[in-house]
Simulated assay, not measured.
Amino acid sequence: MTDHEIRMLGVGGAEQLSVAPHQPLIPAVDEIRIRHKAIGVNFIDIYHRLGLYPLSEMPAILGVEGAGVIEAVGSNVRSVKPGDRVAYVGLPVGAYSATRLLPAERAIVLPEDIVTTLAAATMLRGITAYMLLHEDYKVQAGTVVLIHAAAGGLGTILVRWAKLLGAVVVGTVSSSAKAEIAYSNGADLVIIGRDADLVKQVSSFTGGLGVDVAYDGVGGSTLIKTMRCTRIAGTVASIGRAAGAVEQNAVDEIQKQRSLIFLRPSVIAYVSDIERYHRAATAVLNAMREGVVATIGATYPLDQARVAQTDLEEGHSTGSLLLIP
């Protein structure tokens, strides 16, 4: 069977993704070559394709997350060996390919009890959840959290991990079917529909106080509604822009809320620190053993990357999406 890779030919729509033959490369002294078993599809891939986070060279191979088996290592590599199962997260891009070269320090060795495909679906979102729930805001028993897209890839993990910590979880979803998923993950209240009166329902549920912390991956006009759902001196983390860029008047809303803490965390920047990256990855592996794992919403052959990205971009999916070489 011929190996393939997905090349992004330029900035634009999913039609910019092209299937091409792939030739495995020889690792440099501090690199490994991994043969992918599964590749995570994430919004950051779409942001790269759209030019919101520009890439320096074209054509480019997208993707910042995957898992598989090490095929070869460079002469200086001692931390891992051929045959090890590993997962990874972070730059440089290059995951949409049958194999890839990777700095050896990026490799997270998978214990025997962690399934490779689940690691590929969980690691990036798991590290993001760790950053949001443990470091950006220390969620604990009784913390009231608001999680948008609560049945999505990141939302599923956030709900499960927040409940593991004893939090009270309010989720939002776009349909009744997705609400069932969010409730099954442990959400205490799920608000359905983009036109729902989010602020009113959250106020009613919290006795007028608002949530302690809100995680908003939607952006656009939703972010202001999210701010209005948050208590005085609460925290809002803007973690995506699925519905568009953050509106400028969001700054005014921060002032209206009085002492609202506004965060724009970046998991890619977070994992650029190798020590922090490995600490977070270890926490994710431990949380996976406690049931904090991604739900794999769908898998696609690697050559169907266009379809996978379109499904994610248009909101047709739940859980995490994987490409399978």
Rank of each mutant, 00 (worst) to 15 (best):
D216F: 04
E105K: 14
L124D: 01
S56G: 10
L50R: 15
Q140R: 12
G152I: 03
I254M: 14
L91A: 10
T318F: 12
P103C: 02
L321R: 12
V64G: 03
G74K: 14
G83V: 11
A177N: 12
G94R: 09
G208Y: 04
E112V: 13
A242T: 13
H316C: 02
L263Q: 14
R231G: 07
V236A: 04
A104N: 09
N42L: 11
V64S: 08
R241L: 05
L62S: 05
V109C: 07
G51Q: 09
V29Q: 11
G90L: 04
L17D: 03
E65A: 06
P103M: 08
A280N: 01
T122L: 02
G13R: 02
G40A: 03
A281K: 11
Q257T: 03
V199H: 00
D84N: 15
E313T: 07
G142T: 07
T310K: 04
L322R: 06
S203T: 07
A141Y: 04
V293P: 01
G166T: 10
G193W: 02
D84A: 13
R241M: 10
L165A: 10
G291P: 10
R100P: 02
T122N: 02
A28S: 12
G171A: 05
Y137R: 04
Y88H: 03
S221R: 10
V69F: 09
K200L: 00
A104I: 04
S97L: 05
Q16K: 15
Q304R: 13
D273A: 09
I32C: 11
K200N: 08
E275G: 05
A72Q: 10
G244L: 01
L50G: 04
G83A: 11
I6S: 06
I6P: 09
Y300N: 12
R241G: 00
I26T: 15
K163R: 15
G40P: 06
E253V: 03
L146N: 04
E15H: 11
T282D: 13
G63M: 09
D30T: 14
G210P: 07
